[in-house]
């Protein structure tokens, strides 16, 4: 009886599914798949991504090399899997750091107001005064191209966005009575910010996080394309694209495949981001 009605509910859910809800689900599926496969790259990749085979260079797709080989005869699929792993790890950690630091700064600026606010937000303005990619580019150039520096550079690029999003609601929240009464009860500022403001701010921040993870991954690809990514021979998607560009006329797939790998990761994140935002803010219901 019960399973029967459950089945019915499930089918009516599937068939009444808004095409866009379906797309959000698709985004989640693609992203999870890419995440699992790329994290398991050392196990699932058919070849060692660094193993050169000059005799087998610039091969097209075959049953041995599903996505062909590059100029050193390295297996493209294996390199894409390892490159995606680096992209995802760098993208997720840098967004995570930006989220924590940016939200913290935004709440502190909004909560204390006055000079704290002015100084912190001016700093954010300074960071925003550079075109997105340029900030990251300069920081990596100065600090050097190791993975940690790249993470720091991307995190600093994204940080002002989180700070702004967290600051605005903090300012309205701190005027509310319950915050006043917390103060009257002698709660410490840290406690008020952490226990009473953070939970009210975090929703909005998290919605945007998936969209900014997409930006982070894009920036990582751009940096490694420019030559400021994780240093070769470690495979990165941007680096593979750059290298393939030299033989673009004869062997376009060497650039195209990693290019589409970046696109799919970013697309999946954008699908999720749109879906989450619509779910949290139904009034905007598919408005953007």
């Amino acid at each position: 009886m019960r399973t029967d009605s459950l089945n019915k509910r499930f089918f009516s859910w599937v068939f009444n599914l808004n095409p866009l809800t379906a797309l959000t689900a698709l985004g989640l599926v693609i992203f999870s798949l890419i995440l699992v496969v790329s994290l398991a790259a050392p196990i699932v990749a058919p070849y060692d991504p660094l193993e050169q085979n000059i005799l087998n260079r610039l091969q097209g797709a075959s049953s041995d090399h599903w996505l062909g080989t590059d100029v050193f005869g390295r297996d493209t699929l294996s390199r894409i899997l390892h490159g995606a792993q680096i992209s995802l790890v760098i993208g997720l950690t840098s967004t995570g750091i930006a989220l924590v630091a940016g939200t913290g700064l935004g709440i502190v600026a909004g909560y204390y107001g006055g000079w704290t606010d002015i100084v912190l937000m001016r700093l954010m303005d300074i960071l925003l005064a550079f075109p997105t990619l340029i900030t990251g580019l300069l920081i990596v150039a100065v600090l050097g191209t190791n993975p940690i520096n790249i993470v720091i550079a991307i995190a600093i690029t994204l940080l002002p966005n989180f700070a702004r999003v967290a600051r605005a609601p903090t300012i309205t929240l701190k005027e509310r009575e319950f915050i006043e009464s917390c103060r009257a009860l002698g709660y410490s500022d840290i406690r008020i910010m952490g226990v009473h403001i953070l939970p009210n701010v975090i929703g909005e921040v998290v919605v945007l996080a998936s969209l900014w993870t997409a930006s982070a991954i894009m920036i990582e690809a751009y940096l490694s394309f420019i030559g400021l990514g994780v240093a070769p021979p470690t495979p990165t998607l941007g680096g593979m694209i750059r290298q393939g560009l030299e033989n673009i006329l004869d062997t376009p797939w060497v650039t195209i495949y990693p290019g589409f790998a970046v696109m799919f990761i970013v697309l999946a994140l954008n699908l999720i981001g749109d879906g989450v935002r619509d779910a949290i803010d139904p009034k905007a219901g598919g408005r953007s």
């Binding site: 866009l20 394309f225 699908l271 749109d274």
Partner: peptide, 24 residues
Amino acid sequence: YTCRLVSLVGISFPSFLIAIVLIL
């Protein structure tokens, strides 16, 4: 739905990829 999907794909395209596709 088509416009939304196309624009979503569009913002997900790394700019070098679109450049390469156009060149090809």
